[in-house]
Design a protein around this nucleic acid. Structure first.
Lengths: 155, 155
DNA sequence: AAGGGCAGGTTGCGTGAAACAACCCGTGGT
DNA sequence: ACCACGGGTTGTTTCACGCAACCTGCCCTT
C-alpha cells in the first residue's frame, strides 16, 4: 500500500501502517493468526503473487512481526511464525473484523470470529475509559495531540 | 494499498480493508477524527498529492464513511464530515496507535492519545471475552472460522 | 538413470496506480 | 486589472503489483 513511506508523520498510526499497512500484509497476519505458517500455506489462502508474498514475509521478519524458523534439514525448509509483537496485532484484526461485520455485512453472517482459548467464549474489542473505568462508545472518544511529546520541529 | 480488490476473500477483514486499506485512507480518517474537515486541511496535514486526496475522499464518500456537505454558497464550498460509520473507525485508529506506541516507540513519548469527551480520562482498547466477561490478553485469543456461515464453495 | 513431484523461492516483463507539477474555475479583496 | 484562496482536474513519470517462467534440493517411482 505504501509507495514510499509516511515519513514526516510523527503519528503512531502512521508508523504502524508503515509496518502493516501495505497491501496484503494484514491479511497475511490474519492467516498467521489462524495458524498458517508456510509459504505455500499463505499462497493457497490468498490470491497473491509469489514474489509479493516473498516481499511481505521478508518485511514482516525485518520488522520483528514474524520470525523465520527452520523446521527440517534436508532439504532446508522454514516456516514463518508470529512473534509476540505479531500476535499483539490480534486487536487490529479483531476491530477490523468487527467493523466489517457491522457495516459491510454478508448474507450468511460473519465468516469468522475471535474466540478465547480454553473457554468457549467469543472475544470482542472495547474502548475503555481509564477514568470512568467502563466501556465508552466510539462516538464519545476524541483524539488529542500530546503537546508534551511534540515540542516543536527544529528549524 | 489495494491494486485491484481482495475479491474471493470472504473475510470481514478483507472487506474492511477494501474500504479503508488503501494508502493514506486511514490517515485521512485519523485526521478527520481529529477535527479536520476541508480539502486544504487534509492537504496541510498529510504529504499527499492533491489528486490522490481527491480520489480517497471520493472513495470514502462512496462507501458512506464520510459525507460531503456544503458550508457556503458563493463560491460553493464543501467540507468532508465523518458519518456514524466513519466515526466507528475510531477503534481501528486507537488499536493501531496503541500497537505503534508499544512496539515502535518514539523518544519523546506518544504523540497523541484518545480521550473520553467530557471527562479527562484517556481511552484504551481491550479485548473482552463475553463468557468470562473480562479483558483477555491478545495471546489467548484465536480466530475461528464460523462453519455455519461458509457452508461450502460450489464445485 | 531419467523423470516427476513438492517446498520455497528468484527473475523478467508489462501495466496501472501513485507522486508531482501545472493548470483551471469562481469568487472576493485592493 | 490583478492577485489570492479554496477546491479541485489534467498531464507526465515512476515504481509497486500481477503474472508467468524458471531454479534449487531433495525424495520417490519407473
Amino acid at each position: 500500500m505504501l509507495r514510499r513511506t509516511y515519513d514526516g508523520q510523527l503519528c503512531s498510526v502512521a508508523r504502524t501502517l508503515e509496518v502493516v499497512g501495505e497491501r496484503w500484509t494484514l491479511l497475511i497476519v490474519r492467516d498467521a493468526l489462524m495458524g498458517i505458517t508456510r509459504f505455500d500455506g499463505f499462497l493457497n489462502s490468498l490470491p497473491i503473487a509469489r514474489n509479493v508474498l516473498s516481499d511481505r514475509l521478508n518485511g514482516l521478519v525485518d520488522h520483528g512481526v514474524m520470525e523465520r524458523v527452520q523446521y527440517q534439514d534436508r532439504p532446508p525448509r522454514h516456516e514463518y511464525l508470529l512473534t509476540g509483537k505479531g500476535r499483539e496485532l490480534m486487536s487490529v484484526i479483531v476491530v477490523l473484523m468487527e467493523w466489517g461485520d457491522r457495516h459491510l455485512p454478508l448474507p450468511p453472517g460473519p465468516p469468522a470470529m475471535a474466540g478465547h482459548t480454553g473457554c468457549e467464549g467469543t472475544v470482542r474489542a472495547e474502548l475503555v475509559c481509564d477514568s470512568c473505568d467502563e466501556p465508552v462508545p466510539a462516538t464519545t472518544v476524541a483524539l488529542r495531540v500530546n503537546a508534551a511529546a511534540t515540542p516543536n520541529p527544529q528549524p
